Each structure stands twice: as C-alpha cells, then as structure tokens.
Amino acid sequence: MKKGQLIGYARVSTQGQNLEQQRVMLGKCGCLRIFEEKVSGAERRPELGRLLDLLRAGDIVTVTRLDRLARSTTDLLHIAERLKDIGAGLRSLAEPWVDTTSPAGRMVLTIFAGIADFERSLIGERTTAGRAAAKARGVRFGRKPVLTPEQVSRALTMIAEGQHPVTKIARILGVHRSTLYRALPK
C-alpha cells in the first residue's frame, strides 16, 4: 500500500455529546484532517460520505473505535470494501486488530465478512421458520384491519340493497373508499 495521509473520522450520536475526546486522540496519532459529525449511526452520515469521496489510494481512515464508524458488522464490511476499492486503509485506535494496512488485519476482516454472511443466512432462516410457525398458529401479520367484520357485513348489506353509493357508505363508516374496497371479499 502506497503511503498516504492519516485521515480521522469522529462521530457522536446526539447534539449533546462532545467530539473533543475523539478529536484529541485522532490528533495525537497523527491525523492531518478529521471529519466530524453529530448524527446517529442509523441516519445518513454526510461527513462520512465526504471523507470517502475525498480519499486517495494510500490514505488511512482512522477512528477511535469501530462503533464511531459503523453501526453494524455489515455496515463495517461495506465501508471496508469501499476503502479497499479506493486503495485506502482502515485503522481503529481502540481495536488494534483492525488495521487493514497489515496482512493480519485484512485476514481478520475477511473472517468477519464470512461470519457476518453466515449470521445473515441464519437470521433469514430463523425468521422464515418463525413466520411459518406463527402463521400455522393463526397469527396474522401486518396492520390491524380498520373495519371490523360487523362493519364489513353492514357495508355488504348496504351495497346489496343499493341504499347508497360505495363512496357514501365509506363516509358513513369513517374510512376512505379504497379502504372499504380492500376490506370487501373479492
């Protein structure tokens, strides 16, 4: 890997938290530039996007801890893959085993990628089995129906007797016309 710059990334989840400790640690380890943001890891992270867009081959993204960079193993692996494509590295100060500039660090991330893939497939299998078991027990998924069976029956009676147009029946029941249509038997 060609020698580049150490570039820091610091993030806190809420506006009330302070970036100072991360800023100091990243500065001490030699980061010439530090991208900072105050957003939850689940939200869009514009500064992380800017950092990734400005990286050059040989640069090393440095974080104080991995949870400041990624919200999950999968997210970390996506970011690491993007860094690899650019030719940049990743280093965590709190987790010394995360150093993709070394063969051992690359090996650890490769193992993590395999474990994350295995975990995803297990979760998918368990979810599918759990849904099937719940359906067999009679559990219904999705939102609770807006109209009760009695209201649907009343609407069917009014429609059959031709008392009112469907739009007025829906208004009487306090729902939108399309909600009534979805509730009626096919």
Score class of each variant (00 low, 15 high):
V61Q: 10
I115R: 13
R120V: 02
M25A: 15
T167G: 12
M1K: 06
R140Y: 00
N18P: 00
F118A: 13
N18Y: 01
D53F: 01
Q17M: 03
I123S: 09
K135W: 03
L93C: 09
T179A: 13
L26T: 12
G41K: 08
R45K: 04
V152H: 14
T64N: 14
R11W: 02
R68D: 11
L51C: 13
P46H: 02
G8V: 02
K168E: 11
T128R: 15
Q21G: 12
R106S: 10
T14Q: 11
A116R: 04
P149G: 11
I7R: 03
A132H: 10
T64R: 14
L19E: 05
G8T: 04
V12K: 03
A104F: 07
E20P: 03
E95K: 03
A183I: 01
I7Y: 10
R23W: 07
K144V: 10
W97L: 15
E43F: 00
R143H: 08
I159F: 06
R143E: 11
R33F: 01
E36P: 10
G114A: 13
R68S: 05
V152Q: 14
A132G: 06
L6S: 14
E47W: 01
V39A: 14
K28V: 03
I172H: 07
A94I: 00
G142A: 08
K38W: 05
A170T: 06
F112P: 04
R45V: 00
Q151I: 08
L6I: 06
T127Q: 14
G130E: 10
L19R: 05
G114I: 02
E37D: 12
L66T: 01
S153G: 11
I115G: 09
R182A: 14
P165H: 03
G89D: 13
